[in-house]
Design a protein around this nucleic acid. Structure first.
Length: 478
RNA sequence: GGCGCGUUGGUGAAGCGGCUUAACACACCGCCCUCUCAAGGCGGCAUUCACGGGUUCGAAUCCCGUACGCGUCACCA
């Protein structure tokens, strides 16, 4: 039987990093099987928490990440509908809840919600509801329902122990006494998450349930439902959370970056995905850079850790830089041109600019700050010419710069290669070190202590006219 | 509080009883390369695996306890 996994988010806002990682792992598990199927299901049974546009964010994010789903609300499939609220409308959960009652896995409950709240409050953390309604006969319950009484359907927990295997955590056993007789069908006729999730996973043929480890404690209850229906229990892969620090996980409430925030800050989706894959999972080989297809090959649920991993923005930055640097120059140029344009209005060759920043920028956002000197050439302190290692200072500059000007004036070919040739002859002729010529020249035409790229690269970008203008200006100020 | 799960450097982590005087990567610190800044190269950075017992000729690796952390105990998902 081929593997079927699902990503089942609630459309409640932004796509969070932890969520996205769960989506990724579920995708990888499915794709590992050539016949595997990856499903998107929207869990919107909590009508109160729905957020406008949230579903689109989910689609957009999955698309941007290359996590293509085979079945889902937007692409269809044989197991639809893929939106829970539509399934509610079909009466599906209600039918199954009643079926479960007949199979002894659930019972009607007429207890007052407020009374329960009060008791919970009064008895504190140790409160566990022993529902008297489960003693009621089905006939009596149906009579009361027919008379218009409000009811919910609660799970009936049998005596004994429940044990299950998790691919990450191993075998887990609990006493059924510790399990709560949770509500399955609310009085408004909607299923609770716990119920809808189980029904849908089964009906959609999910073989491998990939989800956060916050569900680990409720899994025995889910399994009891599977068993009551006589259904096959899926394989479980519970993933530890992605943490902000050692105490709390990444969340919007903490103001932590969402996927779209990171993209806006200039991170590549590929790099983000690559990074989060490594949070809580370690490949067998000693390697860090993976495309999504390579992750599919390398992935193995047995190497998922049991401990929450702290999200390290620094390492993401580094990884993003690696991805950026590995890009083809034309593609990179197309990608960064909008960022270059933010800082540079002048008519300089974008591709040449892209080439010098590609080796230096780790995020796209930092690009504009690196390029201010291209449009702006301001008077600067001649102290800038001083560099101990280069053995240069204003005096050296005074001697060297006119020589540079002379050479450059007569230079027609302004390509980097040509400039390189001609400018490296100069120190040889003057019996200087390369740095004693090129360092002052770079300072003279940029006015900055540090720049992305050296004198030759920058002169080539500035062009002959602008380079000579700046050089003459700099000489006159010495 | 009950139950469940976990604990290897600042961070991600490898490790599955001897090959470990604990890989690798980020960060950090040096040096090299170099026209600055990056990138790249080289080297340094846990005598120690939360703590305490035990098992064993031998333990980060197995067992028990303690501490700490996280999760869960909703008509939320």
């Amino acid at each position: 039987m081929s593997i079927r996994t699902r990503f089942a988010p609630s459309p409640t806002g932004y796509m969070h990093i932890g969520n996205l990682r769960t989506a990724l792992y579920a995708y990888l598990v499915a794709r590992k099987d050539p016949e595997g199927v990856y499903i998107l299901r929207i869990e919107d049974t909590d009508q109160g928490r729905l957020v406008e546009g949230a579903t689109d964010i989910i689609y957009d994010t999955l698309k941007a990440c290359g996590l293509r789903h085979d079945e889902g609300p937007d692409v269809g499939g044989d197991y639809g509908p893929y939106v829970q609220s539509e399934r509610v409308r079909d009466g599906l959960y209600k039918d199954y809840a009643h079926k479960l009652i007949r199979r002894g896995g659930a019972h009607y409950c007429f207890c007052d919600e407020e009374m329960l709240q009060e008791r919970r409050q009064a008895e504190g953390d140790s409160f566990k509801y022993d529902d008297p309604c489960k003693l009621l006969s089905v006939e009596e319950c149906e009579k009361r329902i027919a008379a218009g009484e409000k009811y919910v359907i609660r799970q009936t927990i049998p005596e004994g122990q429940t044990s299950f295997n998790d691919e990450v955590f191993g075998t887990i056993t609990v006493d059924n006494e510790t399990l709560d007789e949770q509500v399955l069908l609310k009085s408004d006729g909607f299923p609770t998450y716990n119920f809808a999730n189980v029904i849908d996973d089964h009906l959609m043929g999910i073989t491998d349930v990939v989800r956060g480890m916050e569900y680990l404690s409720s899994t025995p209850k889910y399994n009891l439902i599977y068993e009551a229906f006589g259904w096959e229990i899926p394989r479980y892969i519970h993933c530890p959370p992605v943490m902000k620090d050692e105490h709390s996980k990444l969340s919007k409430r903490n103001g932590d970056a969402s996927f779209q925030d990171l993209v806006a800050k200039g991170y590549l989706p590929e790099a983000i995905l690559n990074y989060i894959a490594l949070l809580g999972w370690a490949p067998e080989e000693d390697r860090e850079i993976y495309t999504i297809d390579e992750l599919v090959q390398a992935f193995n649920v047995r190497r998922i850790g049991k401990v929450g991993a702290i999200f390290d923005p620094e390492k993401l930055k580094w990884l993003n830089g690696m991805w950026l640097r590995a890009m083809d120059l034309d593609a990179y140029t197309a990608l960064v041109t909008p960022y270059i344009d933010q800082a540079v209005k002048g008519d300089f060759d974008r591709k040449k600019i892209a080439a010098i920043i590609q080796q230096r920028a780790n995020t796209l956002q930092e690009i504009p700050d690196m390029l201010g000197f291209l449009d702006h050439f301001e008077p600067f302190d001649s102290e800038l010419y001083f560099n101990k290692k280069m053995k240069t200072n204003a005096e050296v500059a005074k001697e060297i710069l006119p020589e540079c000007l002379e050479v450059l004036k007569n230079q027609e070919d302004w390509s980097q290669e040509a400039l390189h040739t001609v400018l490296l002859e100069l120190p040889k002729r003057l019996e200087k070190k390369n740095g004693q010529v090129l360092f002052p020249l770079r300072i003279a035409i940029t006015g900055k202590a540090s720049t992305p790229g050296g004198a030759i690269e920058i002169a080539s970008i500035l062009g002959k006219e602008e380079t000579l203008r700046r050089l003459e200006t700099a000489i006159s100020r010495l």
